[in-house]
Structure formats: structure tokens, C-alpha cells
Simulated assay, not measured.
Amino acid sequence: MLWLKALHLIFMVTWFAGLFYLPRLYVYHAMSSDEISNERFKVMERKLFFGIMTPGMIVTFIFGIWMLIDYAWVMYSQSGWLHVKLTMLALMVVYHVYCGKWLLDFKHDRNTHSHVYYRWMNEVPVLFLIGIIILAVVKPF
């Protein structure tokens, strides 16, 4: 069971690394004005989203579901913290999908947001990380 938890955490860190870095790339991309930079950011964003973030999310979910099936599912009906954590995970997936939408907007040169917007969006994963870690470790309710 500890191996499952360790692997779950390793891939969660991988997923979060992408969630933290991709919006930062969008900040710089939104500020770029030359074609060389524009094309370079498109490549970096695509590789991060499809090569690191999305696989990290998928494997995080595989090990998370495995842990739920193995031992946490029995506690599920009595664990309010787990309900909130799973809700936060669902919201993180929505954020992940929005990152993919922004990726497509940049890819097709139709971004309408400023670098300031992406600076704010870059802070969203911090809130998820704080909430999820506190829920999973402290189990406050």
C-alpha cells in the first residue's frame, strides 16, 4: 500500500509541476511579439501539456483509484474530507482542461487574454495544492 501511495504522490508532483509551469509559459507567450518566440512557446507548451501534465494526471488517477478500491472506499461514506478532496480533484481536471483550451488558442493564434490574466491563473493550482494536501494529511473531518 505504501508503494501505491508513493507512486501516487510522485505522479501528482509531476502533474502539479505542469500545472504550475504551463500558465507561466502562457504569461511569456502572451507577452511575446516575434514569430520565433511565438513558435518556440507553442512547442514548449505542447510538450509540457501532452508529455508531462496529461500523463502525470492519468497515472495519478490510476494510483488514486487503486488506493480507493484497496482501502479507502470502505471509509468513503464516513469521510467528509475525502468527498471534498475528490471535489477539488474534479475542479483540478476542469482547470487542466482549460489549460488545454488555452493551448489550442495559442496554437491557432487566437489568444484573447493578457499576460496579467495568465499571471492570475498561474495561482489557481496553489490553492488546489494547499487544500488537497491539508485534506489528505490532516483529514480534518
Score class of each variant (00 low, 15 high):
L7Q: 04
L7Y: 05
H8P: 10
H8N: 09
H8V: 12
M12N: 02
T14G: 10
W15S: 02
W15I: 03
F16V: 04
L19C: 09
L19F: 05
F20H: 07
Y21L: 06
Y28P: 11
Y28H: 11
Y28Q: 08
M31H: 12
M31N: 13
S32M: 10
D34L: 08
D34N: 14
S37A: 14
N38A: 12
N38E: 11
E39S: 13
E39M: 11
F41Q: 11
F41K: 08
V43R: 11
V43D: 00
E45P: 02
K47Q: 05
L48C: 05
L48S: 06
F49T: 00
F50P: 01
F50C: 03
G51H: 04
I52P: 03
M53C: 01
T54I: 04
T54H: 08
T54A: 09
P55Q: 12
P55E: 07
P55K: 13
M57Y: 05
I58F: 11
I58T: 08
F63G: 06
W66L: 15
W66V: 14
M67L: 15
M67N: 14
M67H: 11
I69A: 10
D70Q: 14
Y71A: 14
Y71K: 15
V74W: 13
V74F: 10
S77T: 15
S77N: 13
Q78E: 15
Q78V: 14
S79G: 05
S79C: 03
G80M: 13
G80W: 10
H83P: 07
K85H: 04
L86S: 10
L86Y: 09
T87V: 09
M88D: 00
A90F: 15
A90M: 12
M92N: 07
V93Q: 05
V94G: 06
Y95C: 02
H96P: 04
H96A: 01
L103G: 00
L103R: 09
K107E: 05
K107L: 04
T112L: 04
H113W: 01
H115C: 00
V116Q: 06
V116I: 05
Y117P: 04
Y118I: 04
Y118A: 05
W120E: 00
M121F: 05
N122W: 04
E123F: 02
V124S: 07
V124G: 04
P125W: 01
F128N: 03
F128I: 00
L129T: 02
I130D: 00
I132N: 02
I133K: 03
I134G: 01
A136G: 09
V137N: 06
V138G: 03
